[in-house]
Design a protein around this nucleic acid. Structure first.
Lengths: 145, 145
DNA sequence: GTACGTGCAAAGAATTTGCAGATAA
DNA sequence: TTATCTGCAAATTCTTTGCACGTAC
């Protein structure tokens, strides 16, 4: 469940000192649930924070992930993307446009055990690939032309 | 189910012309089920094929993936790894040593629909992160010292 | 004033591209 | 011979690192 905590409260909870830059990145993640990449975040914030550097975005995201305030997704081949929603949910990658969408978690038939073949399971990911509804529409239109 | 098809047969089936390099890469994947990276493959084959280039390994892997003869996994942050087993199974990434292990697929309570929120699902991935049995052993030993 | 944060520039790593020579149908 | 394949070198992209300056307690 996504709470209404402000960026400030989330940083406090994660024990991250709330600099202007960190608040901006956290706030961006809260307001943009479309799984932005480092570049997305940097490009969007840069106009209003001209001195912001990509290094700081990288630093901040690492802090957020380490502090449990965000999730890093490595679904895409080339770059990581980030998600302020750290609750269990699934992800869908469109093979056409490369966008990542949230999906509800699909229940497993049985509970995932803490340990499998001696390995301790700490995190569970579900993800799917296919064609998103927008690209399907686009492709349909092309056929009609 | 993993079949006993030789590299040659798999390439034929995928309509990939069986050059020496392609057979070597395919065969490597068949014989090494530990999810090798491009570099693993290149470094291992290079001694016996001194003229082999990384470009060719990249080219070949792309052909194999496109032809359905191998799977590319983007679990790891920095590089992709490859798996000749294209049947449904889950993967486990050890956060300590970075190794990727196979796991049996966990059944979902319900069948995954072909379409969710308008998106067409074509591929389903399950993966887990945690500490593998080998790293757990190592950590236990350290505590005993 | 000391520790922490920021951002530039450079380095590093993974992957892709362009292209010329080699190989195979 | 003609299309395909290979592999070098260079380019590109993503990310990390080193370091000097700035900021905050």
């Amino acid at each position: 469940m996504i709470t209404n905590m402000t960026a400030r409260k989330i940083l406090d909870k994660a024990d991250i000192r709330p600099s202007v830059q960190r608040l901006a990145v956290m706030n961006y993640l809260i307001e943009h649930r479309n799984h932005p990449t480092v570049d997305d975040i940097f490009s969007s914030l840069s106009p209003s924070m001209p001195t912001l550097s990509k290094t700081t975005v990288y630093n901040t995201l690492r802090l957020l992930v380490d502090g449990g305030a965000a999730q890093m997704l490595t679904i895409q081949e080339h770059n990581s993307c980030f998600d302020a929603d750290t609750t269990p949910h699934a992800h869908f990658l469109c093979k056409q446009c490369g966008r990542v969408f949230d999906m509800n978690f699909f229940d497993f038939k049985d509970r995932i055990p803490d340990e499998v073949e001696g390995h301790s399971i700490e995190e569970t990911y579900q993800f799917f690939k296919g064609t998103c509804r927008y690209c399907k529409n686009k492709m349909n239109k092309q056929f009609k032309d």
